[in-house]
């Protein structure tokens, strides 16, 4: 079944023809060529695919493209204000070596930003670790990811993002 979808991705209006079964992550990667969002599992557990839909973090591998009709979508590609001006969360990941192979990173960053906002920029280590339940990383051992998120929270607050 071929269906038209239209949504806003990183501030730009986009549209396309998809099958009902097309996942949102497939729409982003295969139709729009935005390959920053990754797929790391088939059971909705790894979080490599996390993006924001209408301001909330979701697993784009567990949403149909048609469910995002009319939605505002933000992906990893839409975070940095410019190539030289990273989002404070991206900056904190870099400063704290919170990524190695980079595969989990887009989902981690998107989950982390949502986490910081939901907790009103106030987090402690235990909360960060618990909130990362939906994001797997095989490289970093999480130590530096936790550090980065704790560092980013005040930075996001002062940057007003």
């Amino acid at each position: 079944m071929s269906i038209s979808v239209a949504m806003t991705v990183n501030g730009k209006a986009v549209s396309g023809k998809v099958e009902a079964r097309t996942l949102l992550v497939q729409f982003l990667r295969e139709h729009l060529g935005m390959t920053g969002t990754h797929v790391g599992c088939d059971t909705s557990q790894c979080g490599a695919c996390v993006i924001h839909v209408d301001g909330k973090s979701v697993k784009s591998c567990t949403m149909l493209a048609v469910q995002a009709e009319g939605a505002k979508v933000t992906t990893i590609e839409g975070l940095a204000a410019s190539p030289d001006k990273l989002h404070p969360m991206q900056e904190a990941f870099r400063e704290n070596h919170a990524l190695q192979c980079g595969f989990c990173t887009p989902g981690m960053v998107m989950s982390a930003i949502d986490m910081v906002k939901r907790h009103n920029y106030q987090l402690d280590e235990a909360t960060v670790r618990r909130e990362l339940e939906g994001n797997l990383c095989r490289c970093t051992g999480y130590h530096n990811i936790v550090k980065a998120i704790l560092a980013a929270a005040p930075a996001m607050k002062s940057a007003g993002v």
């Binding site: 909705s44 996390v50 909330k56 697993k59 567990t62 989950s111 986490m115 939901r118 939906g134 994001n135």
Partner: peptide, 9 residues
Amino acid sequence: IGDPQVRNR
């Protein structure tokens, strides 16, 4: 229940 992203949906 599940993780934050599961709870959001």
